[in-house]
């Protein structure tokens, strides 16, 4: 799994690529800690190039969302498609989080 951060005026946009599975999901937890340490509170996670996510990935995302919320922050998502979108729908994450088509729309919303 790889992360590319882009700092915008009111948020951090993070493009996540590769596979978010039971082996790699802890990397997401570590990234979340980096965002908090850097004082980032609004984080747009773009999953447009994420190939795969399992419940281990959902677990890390929920843990990150809880921690950001605890710091008056927010986790938003964009670019969901295919199986990643299906996993978000089945788990109810699609309804629980703010989801946008693109990261630009997430920044505007």
């Amino acid at each position: 799994m790889n992360f590319t951060d882009t700092k915008k005026s009111n948020a951090l946009v993070v493009n996540v690529t590769g596979r978010m599975d039971a082996i790699t999901a802890p990397e997401f937890d570590a990234q979340c800690q980096n965002w908090l340490d850097a004082g980032e509170t609004k984080v747009v996670v773009d999953l447009g190039d994420l190939e795969y996510i399992s419940s281990a990935g959902l677990r890390s995302i929920l843990a990150a969302a809880k921690r950001l919320k605890g710091s008056q922050g927010e986790l938003l998502f964009s670019g969901l498609s295919g199986m990643v979108e299906e996993v978000f729908n089945v788990s109810g994450f699609a309804a629980m989080f703010k989801i946008y088509k693109t990261s630009e729309e997430a920044l505007a919303g």
Binding site: S55, L62, A63, K66, K69, V90, S91, G92, F97
Partner: peptide
């Protein structure tokens, strides 16, 4: 409960739901 919000949602437990759904 997949309708709970971020605060109420327990961490974990979604694997089986994915298995039975897919």
């Amino acid at each position: 409960d997949t309708t709970a919000n971020i605060d109420e949602r327990p961490i974990g437990g979604l694997g089986l739901l994915l298995v039975t759904t897919l």
